[in-house]
Nucleic acid binder design. Structure first.
Lengths: 227, 227
DNA sequence: CCCGTATAATGAATTAAACTCAGTTTAAAT
DNA sequence: ATTTAAACTGAGTTTAATTCATTATACGGG
């Protein structure tokens, strides 16, 4: 008698919760957090206002639900977008493309992330989970010998996500659409630095040819954009 | 009779406005935007609640005032922190240090920036003004010949500010204090890419020695941090 | 198939806090 | 000292989040 749900199937409840989240996402994205009324969200979900509060403690918590689900889905999408057999560099490019494209496509929801919990409490767990996709790629790169042992992953993670996020804002601000060169350029920069570190840690002097190729690819990529 | 202020000196009014902003900054930083009550802000400024609304249309507008003043002061501080005669690289390092330190010291106010106006209307003008400090350094670097003519300033600006912002969040999250190596590593990466571009645009093959020095400096800096 | 009842849902009532505005005070020009 | 427009005040209004007493529903057992 303990494991028996006394009422209402799990599926039914989850469907309702999901429809509330759908409605909330729509209204929050349209009107922003302050502009969104819980009564509007309830109406959009075909539910009474009080029902929302059965599923979420308050409006902030509802926002956290929307944002959390978004990042969870993003994690799944990212994992699907990455080919397991590709090289580390290719995987980073796949993640970079996917990330930038997602930031642009769902700019409003991403923006809501920063309203979720300013810095109080534990940060959004789902965001941390997403970031691990990057960490896994890098770790595998090190394990495979494609990246030097001492690669500063934490630093590069901030470079990767920080740059993409600011690039997305810049693109939005200038009303431009997805631009693949942003990702390519970013990777050129990161690769330059990891290659450099790799050279030393492998203990062999890189040949002039190797160096020139690295630098040429960097310079080639950088040229395609300009300001 | 037109230019004569009929009542109350400008200085007096500006002092009051400033004291309201001081109070608002204190309360917003302490409690966050939603947690801050206008009545608390009014009390902290020794002013009636209605008076706040004589100076600011609403609570959002008050927040914009606080955030705007912050970035304006940041611009002044940045300009003071940069030695006019230093090389471009040194100036970038000075700006980077100053920026990261400011982000960490005033983390709460910086966070409020993103609540100010999600993406609606024109973005905070004062933030744009601040960003120009970076642009001026880069432009001067190009003019002086320290940076290649085709340096993609827009891209590098996103790398610079994006990385520093995410690094600041990471440091806060891990409860670490200012770490200069973050700036140094970032510059190594950026310099690597500009040097590469410079090599081509100057039309001369970089010597193996030059390349090795660039890469060694990058690798040296990267080594100091780790994850 | 119907009943009992625990769970889920409702929406009117409560509360909290942003915002307004009619009345009062103040600064400075005369 | 008087005048008066600008500044200020804070009680009252409004809006919207949150609560909770009441009603509806799902479903296991009879």
């Amino acid at each position: 008698m303990s494991a028996t749900p006394r009422h209402t199937s799990r599926a039914r409840i989850e469907a309702k919760e999901s429809s509330i989240l759908d409605a909330a996402e729509k209204i929050f994205a349209r009107a922003g957090f302050d502009g969104a009324k819980v009564s509007d969200i309830a109406r959009a979900a075909s539910v009474a206002e009080g029902t929302v509060y059965l599923y979420y403690k308050n409006k902030q918590d509802l926002l956290a639900g929307v944002v959390g689900r978004f990042w969870t889905q993003l994690t799944l999408g990212a994992e699907a977008a990455i080919e397991p057999d590709a090289t580390t560099l290719e995987q980073l490019e796949q993640l970079g493309r996917y990330h930038l494209q997602s930031l642009l496509n769902q700019f409003e929801v991403v923006s809501l992330t920063y309203r979720a919990r300013p810095q109080q409490e534990q940060d959004l767990d789902q965001v941390r989970e997403y970031v691990r996709v990057f960490d896994r790629i890098m770790q595998r790169g090190v394990d495979r010998g494609e990246l030097p042992k001492g690669t500063p992953m934490g630093q590069l993670r901030d470079v990767f996500f920080g740059t993409l996020e600011f690039s997305a804002r810049t693109l939005k601000l200038r009303e431009r659409s997805y631009d693949h060169s942003v990702v390519t350029n970013l990777l050129s920069i990161m690769v330059g630095s990891t290659d450099a570190a790799a050279g030393k840690l492998k203990g062999k002097e890189p040949s002039n040819r190797d160096l020139m190729n690295t630098l040429k690819s960097i310079q080639k990529q950088l040229k395609t954009v300009g300001d």
